[in-house]
């Protein structure tokens, strides 16, 4: 697993992909930060992170699109699948490399908020809650991205497929808000809504059920990725 993780992380920087991702992410984060805080003279943390969540839905597939599709296209997956490692190790190695990229840049860009300390009373609990929420949502998004990448040989369709599934999850949340709150469907939609859960964390409260929710949704997609490979092996 460690070997795959290292190779994968390195591969982001042997091509342009890693740099492109970092530059776009940091630039957009910078603009959103400036727009939501400095220009609007506000110490509000949550607006920035809510916008970053939407942005992640579009940018994270860039990190995950090639994870498996490229291996499959260039037939290098044969090396991984005949090596003495488990399928879970292979999937986790790749997932973690993408996740470390995302988590690193997310934490780095969140440091922008330290600039506000001289000007406003920064609520650290809220800031940390927001960072944690974004990191958890990223866990789910990257899980989805890795899974879709395993389904396709084509990077572009992997990226588009990932965005579609993520938007589907976000749409479920919006749909939920249209359903009357005492109707059973509302509970189901709310339970599936990634966005709604996000809001509990951004208020600065630590909620164990939300943590478990994100970790389990992300893990389901990783498990599905393992299943894709297991199934393909059994042809």
């Amino acid at each position: 697993m460690l070997a795959i993780f290292k190779r994968e992380l390195r591969s982001y920087f042997t091509g342009a992909l890693g740099y492109v991702f970092l530059v776009i992410y940091l630039a957009v984060a910078g603009v959103l930060f400036a727009y939501t805080t400095l220009f609007s003279m506000s110490g509000n943390v949550t607006t920035y992170f809510t916008l970053m969540l939407l942005f992640s839905a579009v940018i994270l597939p860039l990190l995950t699109m090639k994870t498996f599709s490229e291996e499959r296209k260039s037939k290098t997956e044969q090396l991984l699948l005949t090596a003495p490692i488990t399928l879970t190790g292979m999937v986790l190695g790749k997932f973690l490399a993408a996740y470390v990229m995302f988590a690193g840049v997310t934490v780095l860009s969140s440091l922008y908020f330290l600039l506000l300390i001289p000007y406003t009373q920064l609520k650290f609990a809220v800031l940390i809650g927001n960072v944690l929420a974004l990191l958890l949502v990223g866990f789910v998004f990257i899980g989805i991205g890795v899974f879709v990448s395993a389904l396709s040989e084509n990077q572009l369709s992997a990226a588009i497929g990932t965005i579609a599934i993520i938007l589907g999850f976000l749409a479920i949340g919006l749909l939920g808000s249209l359903v009357p709150s005492n109707f059973w469907l509302r509970y189901v939609l709310d339970a599936l809504s990634i966005f709604r859960r996000f809001q509990t964390f951004t208020a600065g409260y630590f909620d164990l059920s939300t943590l478990v929710y994100y970790l389990s949704v992300g893990s389901v997609f990783l498990w599905l990725t393992v299943r894709v490979y297991d199934r393909r092996r059994n042809g």
């Binding site: 460690l2 091509g15 260039s74 044969q78 003495p84």
Partner: peptide, 28 residues
């Protein structure tokens, strides 16, 4: 087992040395 598939499973963005080191780690 050491296996050479019909199409060698090589990563074009690695040097020979890096690739062999990667395989060394991969095989534990």
């Amino acid at each position: 087992i050491g296996f050479l598939p019909e199409q060698p499973p090589l990563y074009p963005d690695m040097t020979v040395k890096e690739y062999l080191n990667f395989v060394y780690d991969l095989k534990g």
